[in-house]
Design a protein around this nucleic acid. Structure first.
Length: 557
RNA sequence: GCGCCUGUAGCUCAGUCGGAUAGAGCAACCGCCUUCUAAGCGGUAGGCCGCAGGUUCGAUUCCUGCCAGGCGCACCA
């Protein structure tokens, strides 16, 4: 093995290719890209890694793709870690690694342990990740649940890429909704009809009882005073319930940010001054507006209404300023599809504040989630009255299956969760497929220890791992850091899930074709150790991947 | 009317800067456990990548138009 290096083999080779191209710059007579990624070809005949860079440079350089490919081939031929460099088709360069040269991946994984896959793409970047942000007036429902899973996973992924992540839950605890909530609780407690535009779920009755139990004196007061008392205590209890449900779901927040608090200590006044000083605030018809149309929004937005009360956007703007003043570089908003209209105004708000809306604000829109059971869409929730709750979903399928399934799809596609599949224990249910792979590796390692097979950093023997399945497995393991970096950059945690499924599949195939432990009275050899070590590296990567999703990696199933 | 998202195998869906024969699981059919977890593995079959143009050596991917579905367009929150 060559000296330990943090660069993976593909990073080294792509850097080498760039060097070769740069050296030939006079001949190419065009801009040389600053980075290039080697693909893992689907077809094994195309080698371990491939690049189409020669095709891409053909036009700017005015040279035939094959001529450029020849330059790359000539430049790479001398490397000891490459067995062959071939030109195929119109000008693809296919690289086949020398036997054993993939072994660095294994020692890397063993040395890095839980940190394997972590990178530094976002080092030094302070990210504010806001998700869920529900009203504290009822249970969290299915829409919130998607974000509870995806937001949490994204937080883990961004942190793995080096970012300093603060997860924030914005509590919409201000405004007429809260008063309607209080009035609904009050009516429920007194056995009166609830306001038409109030809250009607069955949970209101339970919550009203809880409020009375917590403060029996509340029945002694009346009128508005009583409404507010119900509102404030109900809020507290409901928020606690949301927090407890999220806690059980494995989603934790660093900051629970109260919308109301934006108006404490003249903070809002300060925010208005800030925005005014940037020159996009104006008065019209007695109201105070922000001229978001200066930056592409459809219409200007009211902050302070003509009657002096605050529009919702007042809070939005103050909240954004708060985030920026607290030092966050990137503010990520995860919103439901019914709020997609917010993107334009949030970006414009940032621009009005003199920020770069493309960098400082990142709005992710999550499409709807449907849930199917017994072939039919489940619509009714016994608690919420209309929509199924997070708690009910977890009761049905468990935390791991719920989280995994919600994260598995890109958020911009509407998704359907089939409860029957999530309860099944087959290939059909990807979370079990992946967890089973992990449990299987662990079983092999337990057996290896029992019969005294040595494995670990001293027992890698990369030159022995030449079976096709072994090469596939090592190659797949080496992809993990790049997958994590991509998921962070694109804000797409589902890539981790897809990768881990792929890795589990590769492992299962390896397991089927490559016997790890000695058979019968066979004498333990270095190959057994090498394979056991490979298993141990695989277990680490699967566990790391599942960790990023907040899904458990069981050692036994 | 304007805007955002979606349209890929019978079903549920992957497919980041355009790349080689478009993938996975399920469902269908055929195989594999007297030794490491069969919650597994192998094989067969299954496609106008919504439609029509355009850019390109090359388009599921980028651009334009159209069709279909979902969701929005308040001095509501």
């Amino acid at each position: 093995m060559s000296a330990q290096s943090n660069l993976s083999i593909q990073d080294e080779i792509s850097a080498a290719i760039l060097e070769v191209l740069t050296a030939a710059k006079s001949k190419l007579n065009c801009e040389i890209p600053t980075s290039l990624t080697l693909d893992r070809p689907k077809n094994r005949d195309h080698g371990d890694y491939a690049t189409s860079i020669a095709l891409a440079l053909a036009k700017p350089s005015g040279l035939a793709p094959r001529v450029i490919a020849e330059i790359i081939v000539a430049g790479l031929k001398a490397r000891a870690d490459i067995a062959a460099v071939d030109i195929a088709g119109a000008g693809f360069v296919n690289i086949t690694l020398a036997k054993g040269s993939q072994g660095g991946v294994i020692s890397n994984i063993l040395a890095s342990g839980k940190k394997f896959g972590h990178g530094n793409k976002l080092t030094g970047v302070a990210v504010n990740l806001e998700f869920i942000s529900a009203n504290p007036t009822g249970p969290l429902h299915l829409g919130h649940t998607r974000w509870a899973a995806v937001g949490d996973a994204l937080g883990r992924v961004l942190a793995a890429a080096g970012a300093k992540v603060t997860r924030e839950f914005y509590i919409n605890d201000r405004g007429v909704q809260m008063d309607k909530f209080g009035a609904s609780l009050q009516a429920a407690a007194l056995g009166e009809a609830r306001p038409e535009d109030g809250y009607h779920g069955a949970y209101i009755d339970d919550l009203a009882k809880e409020v009375v139990a917590a403060n029996p004196q509340i029945l002694k007061v009346s009128g508005e005073e009583q409404t507010f008392a119900f509102r404030d205590l109900g809020y507290k209890l409901q928020l606690t319930q949301q927090q407890s449900v999220l806690d059980k779901f494995g989603t934790h927040f660093d900051v629970w940010f109260s919308e109301k608090s934006l108006y404490d200590n003249d903070f809002f006044v300060h925010c208005q001054e800030v925005l005014k000083s940037k020159g996009h605030v104006f008065q019209l018809d007695g109201a105070t507006w922000l001229r978001t149309t200066d930056f592409g929004d459809d219409k200007d937005r009211v902050m302070v209404k003509s009657d002096g009360s605050m529009a919702y956007f007042a809070s939005d703007s103050a909240y954004y300023i708060s985030k920026r003043e607290r030092g966050f570089d990137i503010c990520i908003y995860m919103l439901g599809a019914d709020h997609h209209g917010y993107t334009g105004r949030l970006k414009a708000l940032a621009a009005c504040n003199g920020d770069d809306p493309e960098y400082n604000v990142d709005v992710l829109i999550g499409q709807m989630v449907k849930i199917m059971e017994g072939g039919e869409e489940v619509k009714l929730s016994k608690r919420a009255g209309t929509i199924i709750t997070l708690e009910e979903l977890v009761e049905k399928v468990g935390v791991d299956a719920a989280r995994y399934t919600l994260i598995r799809y890109p958020v911009d596609t509407p998704m359907v969760m089939d409860v029957d599949i999530l309860r099944s224990r087959t290939n059909e249910n990807p979370v079990y497929y992946v967890q089973y792979a992990h449990a299987r590796v662990c079983a092999v390692l337990r057996n290896a220890s029992d019969i005294g097979i040595k494995y670990g950093a001293d027992s890698i023997y990369p030159e022995l791992l030449v079976h096709e399945r072994e090469r596939e497995l090592i190659g797949a393991l080496g992809e993990f850091p790049r997958v994590v970096a991509g998921a962070a950059e694109l804000r797409e945690p589902h890539r981790i899930a897809r990768y881990v499924e792929e890795l589990a599949g590769v492992y299962h195939r390896f397991y089927a074709d490559c016997r790890v432990l000695p058979l019968g009275d066979e004498t333990p050899s270095e190959l057994h150790s090498a394979r056991a070590t490979l298993c141990s590296a695989t277990a680490q990567v699967i566990a790391n991947g599942l960790e990023l999703l907040g899904v458990s990696a069981p050692e036994k199933m």
